[in-house]
Design a protein around this nucleic acid. Sequence first.
DNA 1: TGCAGATCTTCAGACATTCTTAAGCGAAAC
DNA 2: GTTTCGCTTAAGAATGTCTGAAGATCTGCA
Lengths: 226, 226
Amino acid sequence: MRVLLVEDELRLSENIADALREGPGFAVDQAEDGETATTLALNDHYDLILLDLNLPKKDGLNVLRTIRGRGSKVAVLVLTARAERASIIELLNAGADDYLTKPFDLGELIARAKALIRRSGSATVPLMRFGDVEVNTVEQTVRRDGEEIQLSPMEYRVLEYLIHRPRVVVSKRELLEHMYDFNWEHHSNVVEVHVSNLRRKLGGSASSDSIETLRGRGYRLQVGRE
Amino acid sequence: MRVLLVEDELRLSENIADALREGPGFAVDQAEDGETATTLALNDHYDLILLDLNLPKKDGLNVLRTIRGRGSKVAVLVLTARAERASIIELLNAGADDYLTKPFDLGELIARAKALIRRSGSATVPLMRFGDVEVNTVEQTVRRDGEEIQLSPMEYRVLEYLIHRPRVVVSKRELLEHMYDFNWEHHSNVVEVHVSNLRRKLGGSASSDSIETLRGRGYRLQVGRE
DNA sequence: TGCAGATCTTCAGACATTCTTAAGCGAAAC
DNA sequence: GTTTCGCTTAAGAATGTCTGAAGATCTGCA
């Protein structure tokens, strides 16, 4: 297993690296600043990234956003100082898989790291299907009968979120929290509008009722048999 | 998802419970002391237990040890006060999956709760059966012979509450208190109406008497076998 | 900078479902 | 036989959802 450790406090970094090498026997690369981390993360194939938040040149959140923006699905465990707690929600929304608050127990860190790698083990399939519609989550394209359906960014985000949770009821609140920053106060019907447009675009015959409405509970994507 | 919240400060408990119900849509049971918590944890199937450390009658650590001693694999997230940090290692050794230090952000609590439930994956069985009816508490769906039965939110809530207490007599008052957050002043027959509709929808032959009426006492769900 | 086109958000009215109340009826308890 | 309790039905109230349209915002391009 290959791990990228991004941490600017050198002594702490060495301690963690040693523990990861000795305990679970990971291969550990180390980076001390955000830019180096981003470059490494994008060019190598890691199973896990341990990411400190407070970094020189480019902070952890930006690193995370950059690599997620480039489509990387690598597991990311964030290390935060106590004072940085406020941004944790932001972090999770940006795509962090887990986080630990400093100071932490090294044993705990290793346990969590292993758990994350285990979890991400079932490699995510980039092609998902429902009805006669096919979604390619790498290219971020949607097709029916090989024909591409043009979706706006927001529409795609809604669809992608739903398709990652097939058959599960997803509340509008959950969709809002996923699409925007956590504290979204407005009472608006953006979600309804996007879903409405999505339905119109996906339309068709078999999939016309693919995004089901469960009044008072949310939406559910019906997926055909696999 | 079904969550047991063990917290003796009532106002805090209510706030957490509300957030868990509204956000991720969990069904939340509340306990105020360690003994009640232990009983509930051992007799019901929870997806997650939120456990305060400092409790009347039996402290959180003891609760945790008892239920782990009985082989329960349920995910446990411990809520600790700042002064209790010393015992965190002890907690993790006793089988806690995660912990949060008070005061914490509600959004953070929800994020962690979801993460834990996600991580523990298919630990708890979300499928419950009575008669020839099958209830999937994850999808919030009800089926008979693979065919989905559409229930309104209130109807589902009644059924879910009953199905988590099979063979137990549940009074109308208890149902009312579970379905509505504040005190219900009016004398009304809402429960009777919902139960009536439920029976009609679940209907069928074998399960026609599945929701038993115990005059003057309440309702009881008859379950085939476990 | 200014323009054109696309996208996002808000609003409002139509529409649909669900909740609650109330009332009559039937069954069990006394 | 009377009373109490629960069941069922129907109807109005309350709430949630859909959709078209319009204004706001963003983006690429000259």
